[in-house]
Amino acid sequence: MVFRQLFDTTSSTFTYLLADEKSREAILIDPVFGQTNRDLALLRELDLTLKLAVDTHAHADHITAAWLLKEKTGCQIASAKVINAKHVDLPLEDGQKFGVQGVTLTALSTPGHTDGCMSFVTEDRSMVFTGDTLLIRGCGRSDFQQGSAHRLFASITEKLFTLPDQCKVYPAHDYNGRTMSTIGEEKAYNARVGAGANETDFVQYMMAMRLPHPKMIDEAVPANLRSGEPQDGHMPHVPNWGDVQITYAGVPEIDAIWLEQHRSEVRVLDVRLENEAKDCAIAPTLVDQHIALDVLRDRLDEIPKDKPIVTVCRSGRRSALAANILEQAGFEKVASLSKGLNQFQ
Rank of each mutant, 00 (worst) to 15 (best):
Q289W: 10
F14H: 12
Q261P: 05
S126D: 13
G95P: 08
T104S: 05
P214H: 10
L259R: 06
T162V: 09
I303P: 06
I325M: 15
D301C: 00
E185H: 12
R317I: 12
E332A: 13
A149Y: 06
E21N: 04
A195Q: 13
A80Q: 01
C313H: 09
D174V: 09
R178L: 06
R192I: 09
H262Q: 09
I257A: 10
K168M: 14
T311A: 15
H57E: 00
Q289I: 10
D143E: 11
A85F: 01
G147W: 14
P222Y: 05
R226Y: 01
D270C: 15
A78V: 15
A197N: 12
L293R: 11
E253L: 14
V244Q: 06
M1K: 10
L341R: 11
N176S: 05
V2G: 01
D8H: 14
Q166S: 10
L68G: 03
A19I: 06
H290D: 03
V295I: 15
A65E: 05
T104G: 02
P308W: 00
G196A: 08
E93T: 06
W67Q: 02
D20T: 03
A60S: 15
S148M: 14
T9C: 02
G34D: 13
T9S: 02
P239M: 11
A281D: 15
E199S: 10
K187H: 07
A197E: 09
H150N: 11
I282P: 08
V266Q: 08
L108A: 06
D143A: 10
Q146I: 02
L326F: 07
L300C: 04
A323F: 13
C280K: 07
M180E: 02
R151F: 15
D61Y: 11
E186L: 12
T157A: 01
A323R: 07
P230H: 09
G112Y: 13
C313M: 12
E25P: 08
L92D: 03
